[in-house]
């Protein structure tokens, strides 16, 4: 499923036009991204928790160059599915 199909379904469920849904969608995603950039985490009921954490710098082996490399620190996004989603998927 891709974005346009998801939007179509959401619009059908909310009984709104796709255009309106799209505006809502962009705003929603924008807010989520802002929170992720600020390294906050938030929970969406019956879906899961989104958040971002900082990974420390570490040594790793680069198999292409066959060298040990120092990987710098970075921020990565995590998603933890909620219990209900896990149950549904099983």
């Amino acid at each position: 499923m891709n974005t346009s199909e998801a939007l179509k379904r959401i619009a059908g469920r909310m009984q709104k036009s796709i255009k309106e849904t799209k505006v809502l969608y962009t705003q929603c995603i924008g807010v989520m991204n802002d929170h992720l950039v600020e390294r906050n985490h938030f929970n969406i009921p019956r879906l899961g928790t989104f958040g971002s954490v900082e990974r420390k710098e570490r040594q790793a082996y680069n198999p292409h160059f066959k060298k040990k490399m120092l990987i710098p620190r970075k921020v990565s996004v995590f998603f933890k599915p909620s219990r209900t989603l896990k149950e549904e998927i099983k």
Binding site: R13, T26, C28, N33, I89
Partner: peptide
């Protein structure tokens, strides 16, 4: 909207196994 979106993501996961949301 957020609730419906979560529901659609669940649907999509159960149907296709893949849900791609731009952004």
């Amino acid at each position: 909207f957020v609730r419906e979106m979560a529901a659609v993501i669940r649907e999509g996961l159960l149907e296709d196994g893949v849900v791609q949301l731009s952004g």
